[in-house]
């Protein structure tokens, strides 16, 4: 499953398919969740805009999708 995500993946697809990734975006203070243009932007573009490392970010998403990271609450209010 992990290898499915690449920088070319569209943000809305990721969030729609794996809603558990939503907190990852929120934790990085990204406005992607619910953004009307999320269907057009790739992870590569989103991380570039927010000055994040793509590989690290994809890794975080992978971990969440695989249920590895259980520390998600930390980023939520």
């Amino acid at each position: 499953m992990a290898q499915e995500i690449t920088g070319k993946a569209v943000v809305a697809d990721i969030v729609g398919r794996w809603p558990q990734t939503i907190p990852v975006f929120i934790r990085h203070r990204m406005a992607c969740v619910g953004c009307s243009l999320a269907a057009f932007g790739t992870l590569e573009e989103a991380t570039r805009v927010y000055g994040l490392d793509l590989a690290d970010f994809v890794n975080e998403l992978d971990n969440v999708i695989q249920g590895i990271n259980v520390d998600l609450q930390e980023g939520l209010i």
């Binding site: 203070r29 990204m30 406005a31 009307s36 243009l37 057009f40 932007g41 573009e45 805009v49 000055g51």
Partner: peptide, 14 residues
């Protein structure tokens, strides 16, 4: 696109 979203949503620039 992100610049436009920033204006529309009055977001701080990342």
């Amino acid at each position: 696109p992100h610049a436009l979203v920033t204006i529309a949503e009055d977001l701080p620039s990342p």
